[in-house]
């Protein structure tokens, strides 16, 4: 678990970033007719999906993004825990959960809510609750 690092409230940058994520989501639907779910795109790119080409290209774009931001003079902040065992466990749980639950923050969160899907709304409600509960237990366990 990452020690508490204070971060500043950035409503405008976060709103702008969110709108960009939304625009990307609409590009995929309008041009390719596909859902912008990152776990699903990743699985299809590395697995046996017949249309793996655009998926792999999407992954190249998402991985290249910080380099593009730095290229135009922006800074990229990412403070990651150095507890490698914890990060391995976290990665396994995130991968397993999104595989079993058919989606993550993007597929269920952004695309699913935009489609008004009851399945996605249920998934978002559940993962928000367990994520908040996990952070509270790990950071504030002494209150229990």
């Amino acid at each position: 678990m990452l020690p508490v690092v204070t971060t500043s409230f950035t409503p405008l940058a976060s709103l702008l970033g969110g709108v960009l994520i939304g625009i990307s989501t609409v590009m995929l639907m309008g041009l390719l007719g596909r859902i912008a779910g990152i776990s699903g795109i990743t699985l299809g790119a590395l697995g046996s999906a017949s249309d793996w080409g655009w998926r792999l290209a999407f992954l190249a774009g998402i991985i290249g993004a910080p380099l593009a931001v730095e290229l135009v003079g922006g800074t990229v902040e990412s403070t990651v825990s150095t507890n490698l065992v914890g990060m391995a466990v976290a990665g396994l749980l995130v991968g397993f959960g999104t595989g079993l639950g058919s989606g993550c923050t993007s597929g269920h969160g952004v695309c699913g809510l935009a489609r008004l899907s009851p399945r996605s709304a249920a998934a978002v409600g559940v993962f928000m609750v367990t994520a908040v509960a996990t952070v509270i237990v790990l950071r504030h366990a002494e209150i229990f």
Binding site: M1, M87, A90, V94, F96, G97, V129, T130
Partner: peptide, 17 residues
């Protein structure tokens, strides 16, 4: 699946994207 994903997200602070 959503519950397990949330726990992993809360530990690492990363979701897939």
């Amino acid at each position: 699946g959503a519950a397990i994903f949330g726990i992993g997200w809360g530990i690492g602070g990363f979701c897939p994207g």
